[in-house]
Nucleic acid binder design. Structure first.
Lengths: 185, 185
DNA sequence: ACCTGAACACCGTTCAAGT
DNA sequence: ACCTGAACACCGTTCAAGT
């Protein structure tokens, strides 16, 4: 039966995990699907759109937990990190796809609503959510790049561990939330 | 006379401004220098190192103004934005180069020192500086991507302007600094 | 030491032609 | 509608050979 857009996106995600973003090529995706490269273009406009589809799939896994707003937002940030850490080079992929306006998932909707519901004025809530987004993405991008370098033995594993990375993330989120709280008084 | 590493980096920066990151190829840089592609490899290890050199040159233009610490840090963030906005696609270039540990300029040194001198404990100062860095980079990356889409007429210029972008940036920086200030009391 | 010429192993994308 | 086969215009990197 005929190929599907979803199959193409899944194949791309598989290539991403196995080979990394730099080696994620249309030809490799086609090969994994045992199809000629040109066949992909019946299901996907171009490579950039395909990558955005992969980003959408990854971001679709992020949920925003219920509960007191500070814990909920922190949970969202940790979920976002976890969803990203589950796929190689995903932070770089997601950041560039979203910057180019190709990501359809509205990642900031839930956190903005939670902050607004907590009594933070909407402009500040948007501001805080956007700041949180950029911080988590940037932080995870560095984590993933570092992990890769360590794996290649190009860098000593040094003082950083999974735990300290999460701790740093918590700290940054706390800083931003503390700043947003100032708009409550 | 013989080619120079600095000449290669400058040529790459020129290509970046003229054609953008996606079309910045070793072969184009070589052509601009009227030299064969292979000649570049006598002055630069590989493309990634060359890109890091370009990132270093851009970041070298960022200074941290003196004065009261809040204004100084805000000034630093605005200088960083200005240095990035001066070169096409620079935010994406700088973010990925720095994530890969190839950037030699220590961009966070000055802001960390300023925050520490203001009485903020060092761990919090590092945290705040890192958060500021990720926020500004992410923000400018989206600004630049949007500018590009508008230029290509692929997006309506919409509600965003230079002024509102700067205003958003000020807001985010304010949020982070307000969070860092909590560590003062 | 520095550069050329030429090659190697790849890319993304398009499109006539077949089914 | 969907895919193949084949092409087009590119890539980054290496390396013998020349100067």
């Amino acid at each position: 039966m005929a190929l599907t857009r979803a199959e193409v996106v899944d194949a791309a995600l598989g290539i991403l995990d196995e080979y990394g973003l730099a080696d994620l090529s249309m030809r490799r995706v086609a090969a994994r699907l045992e199809v000629q490269p040109g066949a992909l273009y019946h299901h996907v406009e171009n490579k950039q759109t395909l990558l955005a589809g992969v980003a959408d799939e990854i971001l679709g896994q992020v949920s925003c937990p219920a509960g007191p707003w500070r814990e909920a937002i922190l949970g969202w940030a940790l979920n976002l990190r976890a969803a990203l850490m589950a796929h190689r080079d995903s932070a770089e992929l997601v950041a560039s796809s979203r910057a180019f306006g190709l990501v359809t998932v509205d990642v900031l909707e839930r956190p903005i609503l939670m902050l607004a519901a907590a009594g933070i004025p909407e402009p500040t809530a948007r501001q805080a959510a956007s700041t949180l987004w950029h911080f988590v993405l940037g932080h995870v991008a560095e984590e993933q790049a570092r992990r890769y370098l360590v794996q290649m033995n190009l860098a000593l594993s040094g003082s950083s561990s999974e735990d300290s990375d999460v701790e740093q993330l918590r700290g940054g989120v706390g800083l931003i939330l503390s700043g947003a709280s100032a708009a409550l008084a």
